[in-house]
C-alpha cells in the first residue's frame, strides 16, 4: 500500500553502515579507507533521513508518536552525531557505538513491524510536539553515551586502568544532555498548559521525567564538589540512565501507568 518499504530501506542502511565500519576498522592497512568508510556511513544516514522525510509526508503527521517511530529518529541522529564527532575528534569507539546502536534500533523495528498509523489525537496536534520530542531524543542520545562512559569506567576501575579524564568527558555529555532534558521538560509544561489547562499534572510520564532530571541534577551537584569520588559518581551516572530507561520504555509496564497521555498506543 505504501510506496515506502521500511524493511528494504533498513536493510540497505544497515549494509551501508556495516561496510563503512569495516573500512574504518582497517584504516591503518588500506589507503583512503577512512574516507571511504565515512562516505558509506554518510550515505547510509542520508538514506534514513530520506525515509523519514517521505514517511512524514506519507502519514501526514510528524512520525514522532510511537516508540517505533522515535527509534527511527535515534537511528538518524545517533549516526549524525557519531560521524561528526568522528570527523572532528577521531573517536573511533564513539562511531562504533553510535552506528551500532542505530543498527540495533533499526533491527528492533524490522523485528516488530510497525503499521504507520495516520491518526494523531487532537491534543498532540500542536507546534510544541516536534520540539518537545526532538530535544528529548537528542538528550537521551547524549545521556546514553554518558552511560556507556560510566559502564566503561566501572570496567576500567576493576582493572585499575581508569583515568579521571574519562569522567570529564562524561561531565560534558551530561551537561549538554541535562540542558536538553530541562528544555524537553519545560516545553512539555508550556504545551500542557495550552492543551490541558495546567502545566504540571503528575502524569506518570511526567513523574518519571522529573525523576530522570533529578538523578542527573544529583550527578552534576555531586561532581561539583567531589571530583575525587570517582566510583560513586560512576554509579550515580549508571543508575540515572536506568531511571531514564524506565521513563522512556518501562513506563508502559508500571502499575501506575493507567491512563497517561504519554502511553503510546500500539
Amino acid at each position: 500500500m505504501y510506496i515506502l518499504n521500511f524493511n528494504n530501506t533498513a536493510f540497505i542502511t544497515i549494509a551501508l553502515w556495516i561496510i563503512g565500519l569495516l573500512f574504518i576498522l582497517v584504516d591503518k592497512k588500506l589507503k583512503n579507507a577512512r574516507l571511504i568508510g565515512n562516505l558509506f556511513s554518510i550515505i547510509g544516514t542520508l538514506v534514513i533521513i530520506g525515509f523519514l522525510i517521505f514517511l512524514w509526508i506519507e502519514i501526514e503527521r510528524p512520525p514522532l508518536r510511537t516508540l517505533g517511530e522515535t527509534r527511527l529518529w535515534y537511528a538518524m541522529f545517533l549516526p549524525i552525531v557519531g560521524i561528526l564527532t568522528f570527523i572532528r575528534w577521531q573517536y573511533k569507539w564513539f562511531l562504533f557505538y553510535s552506528l551500532g546502536l542505530a543498527i540495533l534500533f533499526l533491527t528492533i523495528n524490522i523485528i516488530n513491524p510497525e503499521n504507520f498509523d495516520k491518526t494523531l489525537m487532537p491534543a498532540l496536534q500542536s507546534p510544541w510536539f516536534v520540539p518537545h520530542v526532538i530535544v528529548y531524543i537528542l538528550s537521551y542520545a547524549l545521556l546514553g553515551v554518558s552511560s556507556v562512559v560510566s559502564a566503561w569506567g566501572l570496567y576500567l576501575i576493576k582493572f585499575k586502568t581508569f583515568k579521571p579524564e574519562l569522567l570529564n568527558k562524561a561531565d560534558n555529555l551530561v551537561y549538554m544532555g541535562f540542558s536538553l532534558l530541562t528544555l524537553g521538560l519545560l516545553f512539555g509544561a508550556l504545551w500542557a498548559k495550552e492543551a490541558w489547562g495546567h502545566y504540571w499534572t503528575w502524569d506518570p510520564k511526567e513523574t518519571w521525567a522529573l525523576l530522570t532530571w533529578l538523578c542527573y541534577l544529583l550527578y552534576i551537584h555531586f561532581r561539583y564538589k567531589n571530583k575525587q569520588k570517582i566510583i560513586t559518581a560512576l554509579w550515580i551516572l549508571a543508575l540515572a540512565f536506568i531511571v531514564l530507561l524506565i521513563c522512556w520504555i518501562g513506563i508502559n509496564y508500571l502499575a501506575v501507568s493507567g491512563y497517561s497521555v504519554h502511553t503510546y498506543s500500539s
Partner: peptide, 10 residues
C-alpha cells in the same frame, strides 16, 4: 518521594 510516586498509584 517522587520515586515513590513513580511506583505507587496516586
Amino acid at each position: 518521594l517522587v520515586l515513590l510516586m513513580g511506583f505507587i498509584p496516586q
